[in-house]
């Protein structure tokens, strides 16, 4: 179980670290902790893997990566782990997850994300991926993004739940 202080700390840093000389001291002040404790707790959370990474969260669309595609495959269960690990090695792959299938309407169980500067580039990278991982025999689909309605980091959680 996560300590209440750690949860408050995560909620505070999720708003973004202040761009100021002593950002952790400013966070500490908000939470009535001291700076050293904030740094120590964040380091521990990162070491434990609860914080997967700490750093700059870029807006890829603004940086010229206009084309974002979710690519999905139907991989036999016995091979999905191996394929997932293999796909994750490619530089242009940003995420790679196994998720459940939903019958005929959604037969895909392996999901990955490709961010590219153009649609053509993303399609090229997908062809390269398929050829190099011998994925030709498995059904796949590509879902390019259209509008982005909301892009915001996870908020843990609605604030009412942390005081409990």
């Amino acid at each position: 179980m996560i300590e209440a202080i750690d949860l408050q700390l995560i909620v505070a840093v999720q708003q973004g670290l202040p761009i100021a000389s002593r950002p952790y001291a400013l966070i500490a002040e908000q939470l009535d902790l001291d700076e050293a404790e904030v740094i120590e707790r964040l380091s521990k959370l990162k070491q434990q893997g609860l914080i997967k990474r700490l750093g700059v969260i870029v807006k890829h669309r603004r940086l010229g990566y206009q084309s974002n595609a979710m690519v999905v495959f139907n991989i036999p269960d016995a091979l999905v782990k191996q394929m997932g690990q293999q796909i994750s090695q490619f530089q242009f792959i940003n995420l790679c997850y196994q998720r459940p299938r939903h019958g005929e309407q959604w037969p895909y169980n392996l999901f990955c994300m490709i961010h590219g500067k153009s649609r053509e580039k993303v399609l090229q990278q997908l062809s390269y991926l398929i050829a190099n991982c011998a994925l030709e025999d498995y059904a796949h689909d590509i879902l390019f993004s259209r509008r982005c309605f909301k892009q915001r980091g996870a908020l843990y959680f609605p604030l009412t739940t942390i005081t409990a």
Binding site: I10, Q14, A20, K52, I57, K59
Partner: peptide, 28 residues
């Protein structure tokens, strides 16, 4: 500091912060 402020103001970064491992805190 000036460079990070500019990147944030011009919306090239959303923030400097943590990415939480899915399903470690709550459920998604």
């Amino acid at each position: 500091l000036a460079a990070f402020s500019a990147l944030a103001e011009q919306d090239f970064i959303s923030r400097i912060g943590p990415i939480i491992q899915p399903n470690q805190l709550g459920i998604s």
